[in-house]
């Protein structure tokens, strides 16, 4: 299991960059509100990385395949 981390960089001009690392799929968006509260800050831009979308694809695949499996089972 990859380690889950948050890297917070506070710049001298007051701006903040926060990276949520190793948290898969939509779960990582839960950390946006946690970070806003921790830092008393507002998010002005967010960027999702390849890892986020790969995981999303897996979740979509599972949703598509699930009913087919059930249908096959009912036919037996």
């Amino acid at each position: 299991m990859s380690s889950k981390k948050i890297r917070i960089q506070i710049f001298p001009d007051g701006q903040i960059k926060a990276d949520v690392l190793g948290v898969k799929g939509k779960k990582c968006t839960d950390y946006i509100s946690i970070l806003e509260e921790l830092l008393e800050a507002e998010t002005i831009d967010s960027e999702y990385t390849a890892e986020y979308y790969e995981t999303e694809q897996l979740e979509i695949d599972q949703e598509i395949h699930q009913p087919m499996t059930l249908y096959s089972w009912e036919e037996r």
Binding site: Q15, V23, A41
Partner: peptide, 9 residues
């Protein structure tokens, strides 16, 4: 990395 945020206090 999953998400990268730019924030202002």
């Amino acid at each position: 990395m999953s998400v990268s945020l730019t924030m202002i206090p």
